[in-house]
Computed example of a mutant assay.
Amino acid sequence: MYFGDYKNFPDVTLNPKLLWEFNLSDFDYNEMRDLVVQRVIERGWPKDWYFILNKYGVAGVKLAIKNLAYLNDKDMSFVSHQFNIPLTSMKCYEKKQSVNLHWNS
């Protein structure tokens, strides 16, 4: 895993700009895990990855990835490869496959 050394960065914080629309003083990071993971996948820097891996653990991040309703193809392939998650077990992949495209309908 590319971020396998995340335990070396236990005090790293999440960039608050990733959650710009929320009041972070009362933000529940556990309840909003899937959203936080999605924002880090889409827009995060390495320190943001270290934050979610320390906060939720590898298993928690993998579970959140599997539950995400949308990721673009590049991000989907990246997390599939990095976390050894088959594309077919990701909700966003299944949802994408079930959508009829204009030229395929």
Rank of each mutant, 00 (worst) to 15 (best):
R33K: 15
S80L: 02
V36S: 10
F9S: 04
K55S: 10
S105W: 00
K17E: 11
D26E: 15
E42A: 07
Y70S: 09
M32E: 15
A59Q: 15
E31F: 04
A59L: 09
D28Q: 14
N54H: 08
R39S: 12
L14E: 07
V12F: 02
S89E: 15
N15K: 04
N15S: 13
K96Y: 13
K62L: 01
V79M: 01
L24I: 10
S98H: 04
I65S: 03
H102R: 02
I52T: 06
S89R: 07
L53Y: 13
D11A: 03
F78D: 06
H81K: 14
N72K: 08
L53T: 05
M90D: 05
V79H: 07
V37W: 09
F22Y: 15
Y93R: 04
W103N: 14
K95E: 08
D26F: 13
K55M: 14
F22I: 03
I41G: 04
V79T: 04
K96M: 14
R43H: 15
N54E: 06
S77G: 08
N104T: 01
G57Q: 07
K95D: 09
R43F: 12
L24R: 08
R43P: 01
K62R: 14
Y29R: 11
M76R: 15
H81D: 10
A59T: 12
D28L: 08
I85L: 09
F51N: 07
V58T: 12
V37F: 12
L14R: 07
D28G: 03
N84Y: 01
C92W: 02
T13E: 12
Q82L: 06
P86Y: 12
Q38M: 11
V37R: 12
N30P: 01
W49S: 03
S98A: 14
K55G: 08
W20T: 01
W45A: 14
K7A: 08
M32C: 09
A59K: 15
Y2M: 10
Y29K: 09
M32V: 01
L101F: 02
N100L: 14
N15C: 04
L19F: 12
K91G: 01
V12G: 03
Q82I: 10
E21V: 03
V12I: 05
L71Y: 11
L71Q: 09
W103V: 02
I52Y: 14
R39P: 04
D5M: 00
Y29C: 07
E94G: 08
N15F: 05
F51M: 02
L71I: 06
G44K: 10
W49M: 01
G60L: 02
N30E: 05
S80D: 08
R33I: 03
S25D: 13
E94R: 15
E31R: 06
K62H: 05
N72I: 00
L35T: 13
V40S: 08
L14H: 05
L63Y: 06
N100M: 06
H81S: 10
N100W: 03
L87S: 00
Q38L: 11
G4N: 09
S80P: 11
F22L: 09
D5K: 02
G60R: 11
V61C: 06
M1Y: 10
L101R: 06
A64Q: 09
P86W: 12
V99D: 10
G57T: 07
I41C: 07
I52P: 12
F78P: 00
P10E: 03
V99W: 05
E31H: 03
F83I: 01
